Measured scan of single mutants.
Amino acid sequence: EVPFKVVAQFPYKSDYEDDLNFEKDQEIIVTSVEDAEWYFGEYQDSNGDVIEGIFPKSFVAVQG
């Protein structure tokens, strides 16, 4: 069931425009499960802007 919160276990950096880049310990709200390997989610950056994109499930852990 979406949405749910995950926390980055590792930093994720990608050159693909659709990917969500983040640092370790970033909290991310997952709004869609793309497939067995990928989530789609969002978070607010330090400027208060909402950043969204896809990212690999293996880089995050589900909270709770």
Rank of each mutant, 00 (worst) to 15 (best):
V62I: 13
F55Q: 00
D45T: 12
D25T: 06
I54C: 15
A36Q: 10
D25R: 04
Y16S: 14
V60T: 05
W38K: 07
A8S: 08
F55P: 03
A36F: 10
S46I: 12
N47S: 08
A36K: 09
E42C: 15
V62D: 08
E42F: 15
D49R: 14
I28W: 03
T31H: 06
F22E: 00
V60C: 05
D45G: 08
V30W: 01
V60N: 00
I28C: 05
N21M: 07
Q9A: 08
G64H: 10
F22W: 01
Q9D: 04
Q63C: 14
P3T: 04
E42N: 14
D25I: 02
Y12F: 10
G64T: 11
D49Y: 11
S46K: 13
V6P: 03
I28P: 01
F59S: 12
E17A: 13
S32H: 13
D15I: 10
L20S: 00
E17D: 11
D35F: 08
Y39E: 00
A8P: 01
E34M: 15
E23D: 11
I29W: 14
S32I: 06
P56R: 04
K57M: 09
D35T: 08
A8Y: 01
F40Q: 05
K13C: 14
D49C: 14
V60L: 02
D18F: 15
E34I: 15
K24P: 04
L20F: 09
D15M: 11
F22I: 01
V2G: 05
E52F: 13
S32V: 07
Q9S: 09
K24W: 04
F4I: 03
F59M: 14
V62A: 09
W38P: 00
P11H: 07
E1C: 15
A8W: 03
S14W: 03
P56Q: 02
K5E: 05
I51V: 13
P3W: 07
G48W: 02
Q9V: 14
D15P: 13
T31A: 03
V6F: 01
D49V: 14
V62N: 10
P3I: 05
Y43G: 01
V30C: 04
Y39T: 00
P3F: 06
F22C: 04
L20V: 00
V60H: 01
Q44L: 14
E23L: 07
E42H: 15
P56N: 05
D25S: 07
G48T: 02
F4L: 04
V2A: 07
V6R: 00
V7H: 05
Y43K: 00
D25L: 06
K24G: 04
N21F: 09
Q9T: 10
Q26I: 05
Y43N: 00
N47P: 02
A36V: 09
E42M: 14
S14V: 01
P11Q: 08
V50M: 13
Q44D: 03
A61G: 09
W38G: 01
K5T: 12
D18S: 14
K57D: 04
K57L: 06
V7G: 01
D15H: 10
D35Y: 08
Y16P: 06
F55G: 03
F40W: 12
A61C: 14
A61D: 14
L20I: 05
E17F: 09
G53W: 03
N47T: 08
E27A: 07
V30E: 01
W38D: 00
A61W: 09
P56G: 04
D19G: 15
F4W: 02
V60E: 04
V33I: 15
S14I: 03
Q63L: 14
I28F: 02
I29D: 04
V6H: 00
A8G: 03
Q9K: 14
I51Q: 14
D49W: 09
F4E: 03
S58L: 07
K5I: 12
S32Q: 10
K57Q: 09
V50T: 13
Y16H: 14
Y16D: 13
V7Q: 05
D25P: 02
N21R: 07
S58T: 07
D19M: 14
E23Y: 05
Y43D: 00
V30N: 00
V50C: 14
V60K: 00
F59R: 11
F4V: 03
Q44G: 04
F22T: 01
E27L: 12
Y39D: 02
D15V: 10
F10E: 07
S58R: 12
F59W: 06
A61Q: 13
E23I: 06
E42W: 15
D15Y: 09
D49E: 10
I54H: 15
E17G: 10
Q9H: 07
S32T: 05
K57F: 08
Q63I: 15
D45E: 06
